[in-house]
Amino acid sequence: MRIVVCVKQVPATNDARIDPETKRIVREGVKAILNPFDTYAVEEAVLLRNRFGGEVIVISMGPEKALASLREAISVGADRAILLSNRAFGGSDTWATSYVLARAIQKIGQVDLVICGKQAVDGDTAQVGPGIAAHLDWLQATNVNHVEDVTDRDMKVTRMHEDGYDVCELAFPAVLTVVKGINIPRVPTLRGRLASLKSEIPVWGPADIGTDIDKIGLEGSPTRVVKTEPPKPRSTATKKISGAAVDCAIELVRELRLRSIL
């Protein structure tokens, strides 16, 4: 089974702090990490390969420093990685990004399964996984929290929905997006870390994967960001209530009634 995992390097939230003025989170100058949801995608791919054989290939579109996230994936068991990096890819929205990733998957060839994290925690769009499936015209299952009955032709997956869950049979090739809870990602061993440092990670550009120039980068992106601004700051005043439990409760219920909530 050949599995491709698509990952993204994102700013680490751990490093962020709260701005006392706006009560919002400040993320400038924070270090980069592997997108948390992607750690579940990598682990699931490694688990499947360990059971059924094959290969796990991790790919990412991003700047050169994203190599660190690819190495992290190799340190926990991925066989190899490819970085998709080129100035021409810059400015890609989710349409163009999923196109580039889909072209890379076609270039790799003979891929049975693509696994992505549910969403990246910086953009929060959750659009790239289904986008890849659409570009490839493959089946897709999003919000997957369980995989079972894997054969060489298909697998059963459990998807989480707002009103419960369902189990579906998904024929290969297919794209999954996975949520936390599908597995517990392993921590890298020393040997894994060494392997990741030694691994040669090729860098592919548009010519390597045969992308149409008008489908990548800003030019290939249907959406345009017109402006970005900080959200409305929260009221900085905190109303403090303390004292006996019953008094706190009475006070809080009164506050809720004042706001027509109860």
Binding site: D93, W95, A126, Q127, V128, P130, G131, A134, P222, T223
Partner: peptide, 23 residues
């Protein structure tokens, strides 16, 4: 922007070559 909407519309946006803004 529900589980269904966020799976369906990105697929449709690619198939129709349209821009999509999430959430």
């Amino acid at each position: 922007a529900t589980t269904r909407g966020r799976a369906l519309i990105p697929r449709v946006a690619v198939m129709t070559n349209c821009g999509l803004t999430a959430d």
